[in-house]
Amino acid sequence: MHLLEGKGVTIHFGGLAAVSDVDFYLDKGEVVGLIGPNGAGKTTLFNLVSGALKPNPGEILFKGKKINRMPAYKICRMGIARTFQTVKIFGNMPVVDNVKIGLLFGAHGKIKKDTNAEVKNLLEFVGLDDVANTPARDLTLAHQKRIEVARALATQPEILLLDEIMAGLNPTELVEAMELVKKIQKKGVTVVMIEHVMKAIMGICDRITVLDYGKKIAEGTPQEITTNKKVIEVYLGESDA
C-alpha cells in the first residue's frame, strides 16, 4: 500500500479541466518533484490533496483511507501539511505565534512535551530563531517562506507539500533552501515539491512527475525525465524534424 494514492483525480473550473484524470502515488521517505509549465495544474493538485478543493470525480487515499471529502483542517491533523505559492503567513503575529498555531492545532495532542521548547526547536531547524519575536510581515520573502515551512512542520506531518518555496530566492538563499529540504527528508517526512528551479528539482528529487494542461505526461527519475521526448516538447516546443 502506498502512503498516498490518487485515482483518476479530476477537477473542472467552468469548462476547463484544471486537473484531468491524474493517477499518482507517494511512498514513505521519498522526495517527489512536481513540474510542468505555468497553468499545468500543479497547485490545483496540491489544493485537491490538502482539502482546499474536492476532486470530482476521483479519489485520494492516505494510508488507505479516503480523504477527498474531508475538510482541510482534518487532513492537516491526519498528517498532510502544505505551504503556499503566494505566502500566506499571519503577518501581524510574531514568528513564534505563526509556528505555535501549527503545533497547537495541527499536531493536536501529538505533542506531549513543552510547546514553547518545540517551537524553539522548529525555528532553529529552519534558521529563524533570531527573529522569533518579529512580526512575520517584517521578514524577507525567503524568511517568510521558511515560516510557512516551520508552521507546516509544526503540525507533525508525514507528508509535506512544498509549493515553490525556492521561487524568487537569490543563489545563497537557494542553496540554503535545498539544504532545508534535505534536512526535512532526513527527519523522515515525505516531501512533494512544486518547483521551477530545475537545479533544485534535479538535485533533490528521487522521482519527478510532469503535468501539462492538467494531464500527467511523464513520470520517472530525474535522468528519465530530462531525456523524455514529451517533456522536452512541452518545455522547448516541438522539433521540426
Binding site: 482546499a52 483542517y73 503567513i89 492545532f105 507546516a152
Partner: peptide, 24 residues
C-alpha cells in the same frame, strides 16, 4: 488560550489557518 490565537490567525489568513489544523 489557544482559541484566541486561532481567532487571530483566522483574521490574518483564514486559508492558512485551516491548513494549519484550525477548525475555522
Amino acid at each position: 488560550t489557544k482559541y484566541g490565537l486561532a481567532l487571530r490567525s483566522i483574521g490574518e489568513n483564514e486559508d492558512a489557518a485551516a491548513h494549519s489544523g484550525v477548525n475555522v
